[in-house]
């Protein structure tokens, strides 16, 4: 079946993303792909789109009307509210959108969420990937009000509330590896980086997120452009810090005092605006250990999503959940 979805409204950071492209940073092209890789993987696990592509949403949310066809979808990420025709169906959830129905997603906490469809999307690839580089618009593309999304080979999906992993009750500090350009800073700045609180601000896009705190003034600014990666903490001449994200500039002339470890980049990107946190300097070995730990935890969470899913599908196959479907009112046969 083909489904056509009219974009009624979309926040300015709404874009199509897949896992991203590799091997072209040397041409100024960052990997792009999802800011929150786990939430993206969860949405794909729940909706199983043909090409591994999802819509990334942020502030401003997204409103879609189904012009024709029907399509299953899943939404995972920060605390976003999801409504079909004005009826709330939860935050992490799966359902089916039918002809004439309106899907409205609004951000209510955190910054990024992923909407995956059970179907294949027809948007263009660039350098082998549908990940959108927001600054240039190259890739699958930004999603704008007035666009019509066309999905092929769509399938309905049984509605389900998906189990969002519980947040830690005492969030750990954000791990960093000092460098590579810490020599551009005095001992005082390095000491403040690890001792004083910083605040995740509401100033962010797909290139980076501004972090407020004690200014960390560089001693000098005479560095030729050096390569950068997601997680790098770049300090401008006024001492302000930005964590680079998926659409980062591939090189920059401002010194990077430290890099957020792989285990914590997405967590800091998702952190609710205004939240205070501390950095903790760790060794490369410890950073690898923490990454393994979180990767194992995420793999288990995805397996749990799949097994819950299998159960729902088996129940649907046995025709046992028809009543549940009607009660939720999200899937009208």
């Amino acid at each position: 079946m083909i489904a056509r979805l009219q974009v009624e409204a979309a926040g300015p950071l709404t874009s199509l993303q897949d896992a991203g492209r590799r091997g072209v940073m040397r041409f100024g092209v960052p990997r792009s792909g999802p800011i929150d890789r786990f939430a993206f993987a969860a949405a794909l696990t729940a909706a199983k789109p043909a090409e591994g592509t999802a819509i990334e949403l942020s502030l401003g949310g997204l409103t879609l009307t189904c012009l024709e066809g029907e399509v299953g979808f899943a939404l995972c990420g920060a605390a976003f509210t999801v409504e079909i025709d004005g009826r709330a169906i939860g935050s992490w959830c799966r359902a089916t959108l039918g002809p004439g129905q309106c899907l409205r997603i609004r951000q209510s906490g955190g910054n990024w969420a992923y909407l995956a469809f059970s179907g294949s999307c027809t948007t263009p690839t660039w350098l082998g990937s549908r990940a959108t580089h927001a600054l240039s618009g190259l890739g699958g593309g930004m999603v704008r009000a007035g666009d019509v999304l066309e999905l092929h080979a769509t399938k309905p999906l049984p509605p389900a509330a998906l189990q969002a992993p519980a947040p830690a009750s005492h969030p750990a500090p954000i791990g960093i590896v000092i460098g590579p350009q810490e020599r551009f800073f005095g001992a005082g700045a390095l000491q403040r980086l690890c001792a004083e609180p910083f605040i995740a601000t509401g100033t962010f896009d797909r290139m980076g997120r501004a972090l407020d705190g004690a200014p960390l003034l560089p001693l000098r600014l005479d560095m030729p452009s050096e390569p950068a990666l997601p997680g790098c903490l770049q300090i401008t001449g006024d001492g302000r810090m930005t964590m680079l994200l998926a659409d980062h500039q591939t090189t920059g002339g401002y010194p990077k005092i430290a890099a957020v470890i792989g285990a914590d980049i997405d967590r800091l990107a998702q952190m609710e605006a205004g939240t205070a946190f501390h950095f903790e300097a760790v060794s490369v070995g410890e950073a690898v250990k923490r990454f393994r730990r979180i990767a194992d935890w995420q793999a288990a969470a995805l397996r749990a999503l799949v097994s819950a899913d299998d159960l729902a599908l088996r129940l649907l196959g046995a025709n046992l959940v028809g009543g549940v479907v009607d009660a939720l009112g999200t899937h009208e046969a």
Partner: peptide
Amino acid sequence: EAVPAYCSLLIEYDPQ
């Protein structure tokens, strides 16, 4: 992946 710059080269690797 490698990223050549003016006077340095970044090498990205899989720590696993």
